[in-house]
Simulated scan of single mutants.
Amino acid sequence: MASPSLSSLVLFLSLFLLLSGPILQIDGLGVGINYGQIANNLPSPSRVAILLQSLQINRVKLYDADPNVLQAFANSDVEFVLGLGNEYLYNMTDPNKALTWIRTHVQSYISQTKITCITVGNEVLTGDDLQLKSYLLPAMQGVYYALGSLGLTTQVTVTTAHSIGILGNSYPPSSGSFRPDLAEYLQPMLNFHSQINSPFLINAYPFFAYKGNPDQVSLDYVLFRPNPGMTDPNTNLHYDNMLYAQIDAVYSAIKQMGHADIEVRISETGWPSKGDPDEVGATLENAAAYNGNLLRRIQRKEATPGRPSVPINVYVFALFNEDMKPGPTSERNYGLYYPDATPVYNIGLQGNLPQFYTHSSDTPRTQLVSWIILYIYFSRFFLIKDESRCKN
């Protein structure tokens, strides 16, 4: 007969499993996640840290340098990309201000929190602000030199994130080229990337291509589902999805500017689970297909046809639905999770974290589960003692 402690443990464990729902798990895939916070209902950073630990996500991209987040992830294995907003670009051209920012937001935390990259600005070159565009490279250089003065360039790299809209041509991928009006900004920037060995980041959303032309763009092609695909007539390389074609188009554009030593990474990609009536394709089913199929390909360490030795490097957008984001409905519905940490949809990968860890408030249900967890942890010590007595 089992000891009282063992019987109780089994009972409480059963209750725990009944009360805990499955959560999406990205188990050791090496995928990153974008953690945006334009919302008024998100769980605390400490709860988010527990959630991501359960999913074994070890790469997170922020849009700022939130000290609460950096503190919550202290002494964890999570690697952070910090965001430096467009509004700070002018200040970063001043060496003293750049040094102050790095001391405050990087040096203060890097001994305990893994900070590996800083994105200086976001989608600056596809905006309309000519002055801001002129600040971008000097700001990147200012941040890099500030890191260097503190001996941090071997730990932290510097880059910026671009919209896929910087491409003037993307088809076929081997003919990819940047917009001619952006060449004056991109050429010296690529030279800088090559000099400091930093990645070139692209925000790529096949959703927008499908939404804009659903009659001509194959849904299966953008969702990584079986389809005839397309063959690049110049290289005879076959593409069965749009994202890989977009990545190789960026590589081709970079090559046209004289560089073959710069890695392209996807800093944002995703699919909305809900949209306005005119946002064709923004559905739960399509979001689950896009993100689920993408993660499975990452798990297989796939590479693009044009760069077969370089596995794709992706940050999925986004961790949570963000209820305060402006724009169409889709903008508030890219999350893998609702703010209460329940999954928006099932992509076939389950986690094992009790949902109460990330609820924004304690309910009777979550309090009960909390006590169950405490009981299990403490009872294991009594169980060991009971088993020892049985053996004697």
Score class of each variant (00 low, 15 high):
196 I>Y: 05
196 I>W: 05
239 Y>F: 04
229 G>T: 10
256 Q>C: 02
232 D>M: 09
212 G>N: 13
222 V>M: 05
242 M>Q: 06
230 M>K: 05
211 K>N: 15
228 P>K: 09
205 Y>C: 08
189 M>F: 14
239 Y>Q: 06
190 L>R: 10
268 E>G: 13
235 T>G: 06
247 I>H: 06
197 N>V: 03
266 I>Q: 01
194 S>C: 07
196 I>G: 02
223 L>V: 05
232 D>G: 08
207 F>V: 01
211 K>A: 14
265 R>A: 08
264 V>I: 10
221 Y>G: 02
222 V>F: 04
217 V>M: 14
188 P>I: 10
246 Q>K: 00
211 K>S: 15
208 F>Y: 15
225 R>N: 15
250 V>R: 01
185 Y>H: 15
242 M>L: 08
233 P>N: 04
241 N>G: 02
244 Y>G: 02
266 I>W: 01
215 D>T: 08
195 Q>W: 14
182 L>E: 10
192 F>P: 05
194 S>Y: 12
237 L>Y: 11
198 S>T: 13
212 G>L: 04
195 Q>F: 12
210 Y>H: 11
251 Y>R: 06
220 D>Y: 02
266 I>H: 01
244 Y>F: 13
206 P>S: 12
195 Q>G: 03
187 Q>H: 11
249 A>P: 07
263 E>A: 14
238 H>I: 00
232 D>W: 09
243 L>C: 10
